[in-house]
Design a protein around this nucleic acid. Structure first.
Ligand SMILES: [Mn+2]
Ligand SMILES: [Mn+2]
Ligand SMILES: [Zn+2]
Ligand SMILES: [Zn+2]
Lengths: 155, 155
DNA sequence: ATAGTTTCCGAGACGGAGTATCATTATGGT
DNA sequence: ACCATAATGATACTCCGTCTCGGAAACTAT
C-alpha cells in the first residue's frame, strides 16, 4: 500500500500545504484496508482546511462536488480512526475538528468558536476515585469545557 | 377523549407517593407564573414514575393521552426550571431524569442504564485551573461518567 | 494492459427527533 | 360569570444523519 501521488486529472496545481496532511491520513487509512479515492481526499482536505470546529453540513457546503452521503461517511471514518474529534457545544450542536489522536478534551470558546486541546488535566483520576467511592467502576467519560479563550478574554 | 378526573375518581385510591412530588413541582411552576394544568400534571407524574433515565419518546409512549408537543414542552419546562436533568449517553442518545436542583453530574451504568448523582467531586476546580493555565476562562462544562454501577459490577 | 472482484460513490429516499403553526380549549384573576 | 391569555394538540415542517442501490472507481491477479 504505497501512498504515492494522487492521480491528477487535468491541470497541475501547485500542491497546497495541507497536501502532506492529506497524504498522511490517506496512508493510515490504506494501512487499514481503505482505498485511496478522490472524494475521500477532498473530504480530508476540506477538514484540514478548517480553522474552527465545523459542522457536517458546513463541510458539505464546502464540498459541493462531493455527495452528501460521502461527506458524512468520510467524516465518520475519520472519527472512527481517531483522526477527527467530535465536539459537543453547550447548545448540543455537534461539531468536528481535526485532532491529534489520543485522549484529550477541549476548551471551547463561546465567543469566537475556537477550540484548544486540553490534556493531562488530572480530572480523570479524580473522577475515577469519586465514582469508586460510590462503588461505581468508571470506564469512560465525556467532558467539554466552555468559556472564553485567551484572545476573547483580552477584549 | 376526556381524561378522567385528575383529583379523584369514584374509588378512593391511596395517593401514590409521586402525587406529593407532582404537587410540589406544580407549586414551584405556579410560583413562576405557569398554570396548573392536567396535561402538565400528567407529564410530571410520568416523569416521576420513571426509575431510569428515559427518552422523550418513551415519555410520549407512556402518555398516549397527551399530545406529543405538550410532552416535549413540559419536559423542556422541567429542564429549564432545573427539575429534570438532561443526560447524554455514550452513543449521544439524549435522556432525561428527575433530579435534585443544583450542580451535579451523573454516573451512568452502561449495563442496566441506571444513573447515580455525583456531586462535589472537585473536578471543577481542577479543570478551571488547567484551563486558566492556557489563558482560558472556564464558564461552564459538560461532564458525564460512564461505567458500571455497584450492582452490575458485583455480577 | 486486461479482466475480475470489491469497495466506494452519489442521488435520492427514508427515519428519528424536536419545533412551529394555529385553531381550539382551559385556566386564573376580576 | 366574564375575559384575557396561557396552554393544548393535530399536524406540518425542519434538521440531521443513515440507507438503498445502480453505476463507477480502485485495487488485485493474471
Ligand atoms: Mn481534539
Ligand atoms: Mn441529575
Ligand atoms: Zn475566543
Ligand atoms: Zn448497572
Amino acid at each position: 500500500m504505497v501512498v504515492t501521488t494522487p492521480k491528477h486529472s487535468g491541470h497541475e496545481h501547485p500542491r497546497p500545504r495541507s497536501a502532506a496532511v492529506v497524504d498522511d491520513i490517506i496512508a493510515q487509512l490504506c494501512d487499514l484496508g481503505y482505498r485511496d479515492t478522490e472524494p475521500r481526499r477532498l473530504v480530508i482536505s476540506a477538514v484540514a482546511a478548517q480553522s474552527r470546529p465545523f459542522t457536517a453540513e458546513e463541510l458539505c457546503s464546502a464540498l459541493p462536488c462531493v455527495g452528501r452521503a460521502t461527506v458524512y461517511r468520510g467524516l465518520r471514518l475519520l472519527v472512527e480512526t481517531d483522526q477527527v474529534c467530535r465536539i459537543l457545544l453547550e447548545d448540543h450542536e455537534l461539531r468536528y475538528q481535526l485532532s491529534q489522536p489520543g485522549h484529550h478534551h477541549h476548551l471551547l470558546c463561546g465567543v469566537c468558536g475556537a477550540s484548544a486541546d486540553l490534556e493531562g488535566c488530572g480530572a480523570e483520576d479524580l473522577l475515577r476515585e469519586a465514582a469508586a467511592a460510590a462503588g461505581f467502576r468508571m470506564k469512560g467519560h465525556l467532558l467539554e469545557v466552555y468559556g472564553e479563550c485567551v484572545e476573547c478574554v483580552e477584549d
